[in-house]
Design a protein around this nucleic acid. Structure first.
Lengths: 197, 197, 197, 197
DNA sequence: AATGAATGAGCATTCATTCAT
DNA sequence: GATGAATGAATGCTCATTCAT
């Protein structure tokens, strides 16, 4: 009865998604998830070993996509196409993930405290940081700002990530998000790069 | 208050500080704090009426200083002295708080969920947002960036606050923090203002 | 509600009844009730939201019946049928309640301190007092006893109520209680009224 | 330093009396008693082994006097002097105890739940019951009331005791109490006896 | 002798997890 | 497979009692 199993599994995950979204990982209750899913609490444990694994099962795909995106970001070195192109690309791919997994993305970044993903935001930021450093060093070395510390890249990365998820967290309309995200990324990258051109 | 009372109080507050730092307000356990402090659970309640008051006792001084700083930031409109001066001033005062209460500041901003300070970060951001909007509108209107939404000011404010606390969260060395903070504030304000001058 | 649910609920209520009977509401422990019922503490809370609700669930029916009885007692003014009739009526109805809820009645009256029923005994007495005063004033004015104070009616009412619950407290046999109660009420009302006829 | 010790002991007992009076045995706190007495909590335990013994120390004298009075009541068989005389005598002696230990008496009877005196009221009632039975049987045998059970004497005894302590509990003025008490005892005994004369 | 800081068992309640049905 | 009753460890907090000073 594999079909039925899958449907229940989905119901549980969907209910869990709602619960995690509104109460965060720690604040969520397995009982509430089960009852929201219209499933006995005991049955939830047939599909997911425990709260942690339920959370992981929901977040894993998004995490993976996100990691891939970051990886791409990190390895795409065709600077020849210009920052504009890269930004458009990133925006597009991020929006793609967001379009399919908006809730998971927000939970992953902002509501994972207490779970094994509680550090994902900083992990993500670390990835972005590394990328920024690689790309921006030549730019910044021309600037009058004395970087003086690699950590400054960290700040930029954090700013970048926070800005993106702030937009995701507050807006639901895809078009508006796209517009805001583009503006934000341009603000972060093109302008900065541009003024040292 | 015949013997060691102050020392025990300090032990409890110190243990609580560690606990709040690693698990946040809600995730922290009075029992764990007590045992970390090497004190019976009942004794903690001799020094602090309840979990809330223990938390408040630790956070109150920092909160007050921070509120004062924000007030100053909000009301100082002598743009004549230049952003450089304001930034230096803010940096100095923030560093002063940080130098004396680094952990408390971080907990206050990032780990107060469930406590009466849970909204302080967004309050802070709102304040900064209002300030940025007032000051920056004339600047941005000249820019090629289409703001398109007041929410963009929110992003900038969040970026600003996150940046500051990010620095605090990762560094312990006062001198390095001062340098990073200055660079960050300049990056946020002077450069932005400057390039549209 | 698949298996034994009602039986467990009954076990808990029965254990609670014993506990409340021997230690009163405040002195009773949910842990002790659970272990007396042979049930895990957490399971008690599946059946009853909290200590208060457990107590209320046990007392509510009796309280309601008692309130109704009091209402009847208070409003029945057909003195024409004679005190004998009224007394028989009250006895019958009281015995009916007692026959079905003897322990609850005793707890309600004598061991509810700290619960929401803690004032029921004095409420009950006040009601009876008002009734006695209304009915008995003409009788007592002929008596050689100098009432001298309304408080004397209070004493009578208290005596009346205490007498009834004293009987309940010590006897289990319905027939014997009926007999004693009848005698007591006659002693309280008919004789007193009768001798001034 | 026996003198000083005695003074502190008295201070503690006095504070305890107030506390027991207003909150009953179980509801009273050793901490509050100590602070009310202006004495360190630890010191209370130098004078009294524990809460129980403190309570006992306060109640013992009254209990003893009360027991003696009951004993007297029980053994005085000079019926020749008439019930009026006995009642006057009992009233006088009870008032004597009450005049010196009003609070203790009330606590002992009505606020001892949880202590070893929690059954004293019923003990007292049992004593009175025995006495009533001895004296009243000849009287009641002439009555139309079918006693039918020794327990009826119990009810009368309870009525008697409750009435007395009800008066004590509500009034503070010795003269008014004396008057009410006399009326009550007459009501209980003379009238009852009288009407079968 | 006196102090009051310290102790820890106890309380009501919650919730992730297990297991008999 | 599915159910939801049952479990019990954990939480914040209180208070009689002990003990180092």
């Amino acid at each position: 009865m594999q079909y039925l199993k899958e449907e229940i599994r989905n119901r549980i995950m969907s209910a869990a998604l709602d619960e995690f979204m509104s109460k965060g990982y720690e604040g969520s209750s397995m009982r509430d998830i089960a009852s929201e899913a219209g499933v006995a609490i005991g049955n939830v444990y047939r599909y997911f070993k425990n709260k942690d694994e339920l959370f992981n099962s929901i977040m894993e795909p998004v995490y993976r996509e996100l990691a891939t995106l970051i990886g791409t970001l990190y390895s795409s070195r065709d600077f020849t196409t210009g920052i504009q192109k890269i930004v458009t690309d990133i925006t597009g791919k991020t929006m793609d993930i967001f379009a399919r997994h908006s809730s998971e993305l927000i939970i992953l970044i902002n509501k994972s405290s207490g779970s094994r993903f509680q550090n994902i935001k900083s992990d993500l930021i670390s990835l972005v940081e590394a990328r920024i450093k690689t790309e921006m060093v030549p730019v910044f070395t021309k600037s009058k700002i004395m970087i003086g510390d690699d950590f400054f890249y960290r700040i930029m990365a954090e700013t970048f990530i926070n800005g993106i998820f702030l937009i995701f967290d507050k807006y639901r309309d895809i078009e508006k998000i796209t517009m805001l995200l583009n503006n934000f990324l341009l603000f972060c990258f093109e302008d900065i790069a541009g003024r040292f051109a």
